[in-house]
Computed example of a mutant assay.
Amino acid sequence: MITKKTYTVKEATKKLEHYCAYQERCHQEVRQKLIAMAMIPEAIDVIIVHLLEHNYLNETRFAQVFVSGKFRIKHWGRRRLTLELKKRDISVYNINKGLAEIDDIEYLEVFNQLAEKRVETIKETQVYKKRKKFIDYFLYRGWESHLVYDKAQELIK
Rank of each mutant, 00 (worst) to 15 (best):
K4A: 12
K4Y: 06
T8G: 06
T8Y: 12
T8R: 06
E11S: 11
K14V: 10
E17W: 01
E17K: 10
E24V: 10
E24W: 09
R25H: 00
R25P: 03
V30G: 00
V30Y: 03
R31D: 01
L34I: 08
A36S: 08
V46M: 15
I47R: 02
I47H: 07
V49K: 14
L51V: 15
L51N: 03
E53F: 13
H54Q: 12
N55R: 11
L57I: 01
R61V: 14
F62N: 00
F62C: 05
Q64S: 14
Q64I: 11
V67Q: 05
S68E: 08
S68A: 10
G69N: 14
K70D: 05
F71L: 07
R72F: 05
I73Q: 07
I73S: 07
H75L: 14
W76P: 02
L83E: 10
L85M: 10
R88N: 02
D89P: 00
V92L: 14
Y93M: 03
N94I: 00
I95S: 00
I95Q: 02
A100C: 03
A100D: 07
D104S: 09
I105D: 06
I105T: 15
E106N: 00
V110Q: 00
F111T: 00
Q113N: 15
E116M: 10
E116I: 14
R118M: 12
V119Q: 02
V119G: 01
I122T: 04
E124Y: 02
Q126G: 04
V127W: 01
Y128F: 15
Y128Q: 13
